[in-house]
Nucleic acid binder design. Sequence first.
DNA 1: CTAGGGTTACAA
DNA 2: TTGTAACCCTAG
Length: 291
Amino acid sequence: MGAPKQKWTSEEEEALRRGVLKHGAGKWRTIQKDPEFSPVLSSRSNIDLKDKWRNLSFSASGLGSRDKQRVPRPKAPSSSPSPSPQLLLLPATNNVAEASPPEDCEKSPQDDKTPSPKLYSSMILEALGELKEPNGSEVTTICNFIEQRHEVQPNFRRLLCAKLRRLIGVNKVEKIDKSYKLTDSYAKRALAPMKDPSLKKKDSAKSSKAAKGQGLFTAASPALGAAEAAATKVADAEAKSHLANEHMMEVERIGKMAEETESLLELASELYERCSRGEVLTILQVAHREF
DNA sequence: CTAGGGTTACAA
DNA sequence: TTGTAACCCTAG
């Protein structure tokens, strides 16, 4: 009760950065035992160092543009507001994936017209609804599935876990031993539509209109169930065609991604070799030279 | 001991 | 309500 959350101070953060530079990432125990950082990181465990470094890495490579300066220190005893931004050392992360613009280059204007910035919830529900795994889908599977459709952040997997947990809270998702799956009640609610999450209630009039294209039943039929079934079939067919189209685009996209990956690999290799020789250079230098 | 998934608490 | 940071738990 005394320590709800102990936020990292600038001093601790800097000590961690320097420690990683000295001993390398992964030697958390060594860094923590180092007499140089020991006084600063005395209240931190090696696991804490690891976790902090993980967050730090993701933040640096992910949304670096957004300054997310949180409250400096809510319970700062010796709070000397001396930010030390002199050291802008980025953690050694492969942010090559973020070298390209964050926005997806191929985006059909008609496909997604959601003004909302980014709703991961809809992506997750979409993925889960499409996977339809009876045993539930593993988080890796879900993550992989979504990555195929949308460009995601490097820390998306972590976001996914948090988001999944939220969805469980509202009974939309069910967790089965490491896997996640749509709740039956929610799965029945959302069958075909995956375009717009804010789907309004269907009117019977629309259903009859949709049924006319089938020619299998007469629209004048009093059978409401038939109309409903027809509407469902139409919607399903539409969803399937839409899906097929997307899959084709997916194949294309994957091929393109493979090419890009190869290029990036070459770039990375050259970077590594040069750095091994002691050269100091930036990615932009190499990139400019290569491409 | 480290890496990673998962959970909880806090802030916008 | 959503995203993030700190914390916890477990496998290798």
